[in-house]
């Protein structure tokens, strides 16, 4: 029997990573699996991928997917700057960063804010469980008002909605999903690979050890019950034909920069993810109801990314030969003369 390969002839095995050391049932492991699927399905060459993370349970996970890709486990909350530097060095790389709600919302909020503003090409995933798992379950800044710790402590500060914040800051692809929703998460990850610019993907990913109990608003049970999908997301990559029939009246098509298409099937009410005001309004409404709006929340497919704005040479900066990066003698002579 022939081994299954993807469009660039690589086997699924190539996209796997090391064995996970996270807790059994951790939502983060499901996200790692979807990442593996998405990169395989899209036929991304792992040698072009860089994996980045900060510190925390979530930030360990890049070791568990794409073992053939370079990775950098940076310091707490500072992965965006390391990722930015790497992409400046080599614009042909594909960057995926994995952070957590503490790594992003607390210590890393400063770098998060500026990453969103710059529209750097990177897929930035927040594995969001509302608590600090690695230090045994303290509240994080995304914990909902009134959510309860196992010890009975109630959170009395409002949460940071990373999606609303990202839209406000100018991010061009903002989505929220649930680690338990395989279909939606996979479609969003594939779309993320087709997007030009920053993808901010907040994935609710329950912490089975410290935050999966009654009274928590980030437990599996609570999330399943309060998940409010905005639309049914299907992704058609540029290298595939559309095989399903869809009704243009009930489905919105978003054309991605690389020619791929996102098909967003309307659910109860129409939702247009290309409209920033609609997006902000819907996030506020669902939050008021104590629900999570999931799916593609906001997209701006055509804005220039950070690297385009910098007008970088076609060849990556990292591999430019000496004659391109050291001006000639006449340049130095000219400078010296100007100083005499």
């Amino acid at each position: 029997m022939a081994v299954r390969v993807n469009r660039i002839g690589l086997e699924p095995q190539v996209y796997k990573g090391g064995k996970t050391t996270l807790c059994a049932g951790c939502g983060h492991n499901a996200i790692s699996e979807r990442i593996i699927d998405a990169f395989y399905d899209m036929g991304v060459d792992p040698r072009r991928v860089i994996k980045l993370s900060g510190i925390g349970c979530s930030s360990k996970s890049p070791a568990y997917f794409l073992g053939g890709s370079h990775g950098f486990n940076a310091v707490h909350g500072r992965m965006p700057s390391v990722g930015t530097g790497a992409m400046l060095a080599n614009k042909k790389l594909i960057a995926i960063g994995v952070s957590g709600d503490g790594d992003t919302g607390a210590i890393g909020i400063g770098q998060f804010v500026h990453l969103m503003r710059r529209n750097l090409p990177i897929i930035y995933i927040i594995e969001d469980n509302g608590c600090y798992g690695l230090t045994k379950g303290q509240f994080s800044p995304t914990a909902d008002l009134g959510s309860k710790l196992k010890t009975g402590v109630v959170n009395d500060l409002p949460p940071i909605d990373t999606c609303a914040l990202a839209i406000e800051l100018g991010a061009t692809f903002v989505a929220r999903s649930f680690s338990g929703d395989k279909k939606q998460l996979l479609a969003l990850l594939k779309a993320a690979l087709a997007h030009r610019g920053t993808v901010m993907l907040d994935v609710i990913s329950p912490c089975v050890t410290f935050n999966d109990h009654e009274g928590s608003t980030k437990s599996y049970a609570y999330v399943k019950e309060h998940d409010d999908p905005l639309e049914e997301v299907s992704f058609v990559p540029f290298f595939e034909e559309i095989t399903v029939d869809y009704d243009p009246g009930s489905t919105q098509e978003v054309r991605m920069h690389d020619g791929s298409r996102l098909l967003l099937k309307k659910l109860e009410e129409a939702y247009d993810p290309t409209d920033k005001i609609t997006a902000m309004k819907r996030l506020q409404e669902t939050a008021r109801r104590g629900e999570f709006a999931t799916g593609l929340i906001y997209i701006e497919p055509d804005r220039d990314d950070f690297l385009e704005q910098l007008n970088l040479s076609d060849e990556p900066l990292a591999t430019l030969p000496l004659e391109k990066i050291r001006p000639g003698r006449e340049a130095l002579d000219e400078i010296m003369e100007s100083l005499r």
Binding site: F72, A74, V75, V82, T84, A86, A89, L93
Partner: peptide, 10 residues
């Protein structure tokens, strides 16, 4: 951070 990321990437 950017300098380190850039140096790491060549």
């Amino acid at each position: 951070g950017m300098v380190i990321g850039a140096s790491w990437a060549g």
